[in-house]
Amino acid sequence: MIRPFILAAILSGTSLLANADEVQIAVAANFSAPIKLIAADFEKDTGHKAVIATGATGAFYAQIRNGAPFEVFLSADDETPTKLEAEGKTVAGSRFTYAVGKLVLWSAKPGFVDAKGEVLKKGEFAHLSLANPKTAPYGAAAVETLKKLGVFDSLQSKIVQGENISQAQQFIATGNAELGFVALSQVWKDGKLTSGSGWLVPADFYAPIKQDAVILANGKGKAAAEALIKYLKGDKARAVIKSFGYEI
């Protein structure tokens, strides 16, 4: 994880010569698809450059506390940015909810997941993939959902964990797990599933996944960081975020 930052740091040295500024963004894995589109627009519209690193929120937390050079953090939850804020690692007052994530039970196989999630109760599968519930908010939401449905204990032996929500999806996409809980944003575009079959978990099955963004101490006073936060709040970015199935 360290090497891209060093590379980015070297590259940023060259881009300082230009007028444009650069912003280093740590992005929760579930938001990797939307941020790419948003960053492209952002770069075009503002002339700034966005350097994106995606990963698990928990991992970013540890890295940020230990001096990682990120300037903006797009978390998969609201808890982690709040903690960072309390620890003085952020620019006070910059935190806001940029998206509310939705959990979906998804399979790469069409028709495997029914519209009501009954498939979970039948249990006719070998592996159910989810993100590590201790570190990933979507993983925690998935466990909540299973408990709510009363199938957590019976399915526990079939659970396989990805280190983050991307890996959870990768297990399903490669067919190694028949189904699993992922962020809707990973499999949703423009009002429909990009592939496979899914069940959108009702919002009252789990605590809302409020995803907060925050400017980190490194980004203090940097125009590009502030511009990005402002851009995320703008209509253009919001439209993109919504197109991936998030609420705002």
Binding site: A56, G58, A59, Y61, A62, H127, S129, N132, K134, T135, I159, V160, Q161, G162, E163, Q167, F171, N176, A177
Partner: peptide, 26 residues
């Protein structure tokens, strides 16, 4: 192990992964 293990206690969660989990979980 991280890529194909699935982090299953007693089956695929080996020490190196357990250390990684501990670090991630603070």
């Amino acid at each position: 192990v991280l890529m194909i293990g699935g982090n299953i206690p007693g089956k695929t969660r080996v020490v190196s992964v357990q250390i990684f989990n501990h670090v991630e979980e603070m």
